[in-house]
């Protein structure tokens, strides 16, 4: 078996409870892997530990148990190989748009000349259509523009793995749609390996190769891995016409509404076991199999 690009094995995260006597487990027995060039989304209810997993992958926070290996190397601290786009954009407000990006590039490419750094920054700012705003301070930008600076900054350092924590969560629907299109376009071009957290099911289907589904916390699990079998490049307007789209969508909604809360109960009852996780599902195939009585529900 070939080595995975990123391998997450049996990780768990817990912290001491307030009285210090017991431990609260956020999630445990989480396993998944990411291959090079893949786009993975993680969906789950608020508070189930999605962001914690992302921080663990980034190295901002360490796991309590298990291992995360990227290119066979244990993730113990943050690295320029793992870029992060934060939910609240985290653009440094005292720097101009351009300086925010050049600062990151200067950290990544230490031998690059000043002129090269600047032209690289401008190239990536053009990619997100911010070339007219490079000398502005973040306070002069709208929320969507700030998030685009964050995207430019993250792509400009060419991380091996890009981690996104609900990057469009705080934006209005129109802006979000535009940025999703931009992201589809950039990811098609760069083949960026990406791990993204989102609440938005449509966003996940549009962007991902695989969608990881998380059960409710505490003691959450990454319970299922849904294959999104829709050819790329995708397009927001056309994707809805693909036969797999609504099948996948309905499956995801059903999981979030009906299934995710029952998983910890099923684990206790023994109808599900940790060794099954994550269950790989191809909703389109599942539907076909069910309709043709190949398997029984």
């Amino acid at each position: 078996m070939t080595d995975n690009f990123l391998k997450v094995k049996n990780i768990s995260k817990s912290y001491p409870s307030k009285d210090g006597k017991s431990f609260v487990t956020i999630y445990e027995n989480v396993n998944f892997s990411i291959e090079k060039g893949e786009f993975i989304c993680l969906i789950g209810h608020s508070g189930c530990g999605k962001s914690t997993i992302l921080n663990n992958l980034a190295g901002l926070d360490l796991v309590s148990g298990g291992s995360i290996k990227m290119l066979n190397e244990e993730v113990k601290k943050t690295s320029l190989d793992r870029g992060v786009i934060f939910q609240n954009h985290s653009i440094l407000p005292w720097l101009t748009v351009l300086k925010n990006v050049t600062m990151a590039i200067a950290c990544r490419f230490k031998d690059m000349s000043k002129a090269d750094i600047e032209s690289r920054a401008i190239y990536f700012l053009k990619m997100v259509n911010l070339e007219d705003h490079i000398y502005k301070k973040p306070s002069e930008l709208s929320g969507g523009m700030k998030q685009r600076v964050g995207i430019a900054r993250a792509f400009a350092i060419e991380p091996s793995l890009l981690l996104m924590d609900e990057p469009f969560g705080a934006l209005d629907a129109l802006t979000r749609g535009k940025l999703q299109d931009k992201l589809v376009e950039i990811c098609d071009k760069t083949k960026q390996t990406t791990f993204m957290i989102t609440h938005d099911i449509d966003e996940a289907i549009l962007l991902s190769d695989k969608i990881l589904l998380m059960s409710d916390g505490p003691e959450a699990r990454v319970a299922e891995m849904v294959i999104v079998d829709i050819p790329k490049p995708r397009n927001r307007a056309e994707i809805v016409n693909h036969p797999a789209y609504y099948v996948v969508r309905n499956y995801l909604v059903d999981f979030l509404v009906n299934q995710s809360s029952k998983i910890s109960k099923k684990l206790k009852e023994g109808t599900l076991s940790d060794s099954d996780f994550p269950i790989e599902v191809d909703p389109l195939k599942l539907k076909y199999d069910l309709e043709n009585n190949i398997i029984n529900p």
Binding site: A58, G59, L60, T78, S79, L80, R82, G83, V84, F86, N88, S90, L92, M103, A104, C107, R108, I157
Partner: peptide
Amino acid sequence: KDFLNVGKTLEM
């Protein structure tokens, strides 16, 4: 903390 995280992810 977000600003600090930016610095951390840039290996400062």
